[in-house]
């Protein structure tokens, strides 16, 4: 039998890479569109309630993954440079060619202030808990990654929360080690 087919047949769910996929009709980028992009063509305008509830301060603190550089298309920077740059706090209106470059520089500067994201890593979670966690994150419009980041930040700042989380994590680690030992013994018995 072909090697790829053998690997496919052997594989179970836990051996596949875990992925995150947005299956919602409304894309995260549409929810985080800024005022500047409201003139760009979009199949679904961002709901007004969401738009108005996100202040400029909040927007600028959004992580890179939810507020991409495409938020202001280059064509718009070129076509409406003065409007965009004046909204960004520029007092002098530059020429169109200069304004496109200035727009790109401004985006790069803003990007540099946002958190950088590390390379992807695979994590394995308790099966039953994973489903609950995914549902929880979906219900709150967050990702597992940002939830984990937020938990860590909260734990760092709150000693009591930190102790509870660490105790729970130690308990879980003990269970995993025990399961590992049992699996090893089992495989030796089967040899």
């Amino acid at each position: 039998m072909n090697d790829m087919l053998k690997r496919i047949k052997r594989r179970n769910k836990n051996e596949r890479p875990s992925v995150e996929r947005n299956t919602s009709l409304v894309q995260p980028s549409e929810l985080t569109q800024t005022d500047e992009t409201s003139t760009s063509a979009s199949p679904l305008p961002a709901p007004a309630v969401v738009e108005s509830s996100i202040s400029e301060t909040t927007r600028s603190s959004l992580p890179e993954t939810t507020r991409s550089p495409e938020a202001i298309p280059p064509s718009e920077i070129t076509s409406q440079p003065n409007a965009i740059l004046s909204k960004r706090g520029s007092a002098n209106a530059p020429a169109p060619a200069q304004s496109a470059a200035a727009g790109a520089t401004a985006i790069e500067a803003e990007l540099a202030t946002l958190p950088q994201v590390s390379t992807r890593r695979n994590i394995r979670l308790e099966v039953e808990l994973e489903n609950r966690l995914l549902s929880f994150c979906q219900a709150n419009d967050i990702t597992v990654e940002t939830f984990l980041e937020a938990c860590f930040v909260e734990a760092e700042q709150n000693a009591r929360t930190r102790t509870e989380i660490v105790n729970e994590a130690k308990h879980r680690l003990k269970q995993r080690k025990q399961a590992g030992k049992l699996r090893r013994v089992l495989s030796q018995l089967k040899k």
Binding site: R7, I8, K9, P17, V19
Partner: peptide
């Protein structure tokens, strides 16, 4: 499942082809 690779991840090359093939 929400976290299982599908055609989307194959198209984006975020997984290998065989990661998204199921018996």
């Amino acid at each position: 499942a929400q976290n299982e690779p599908t055609l989307l991840e194959v198209m984006k090359a975020s997984v290998q082809l065989e990661d998204a093939i199921y018996e």
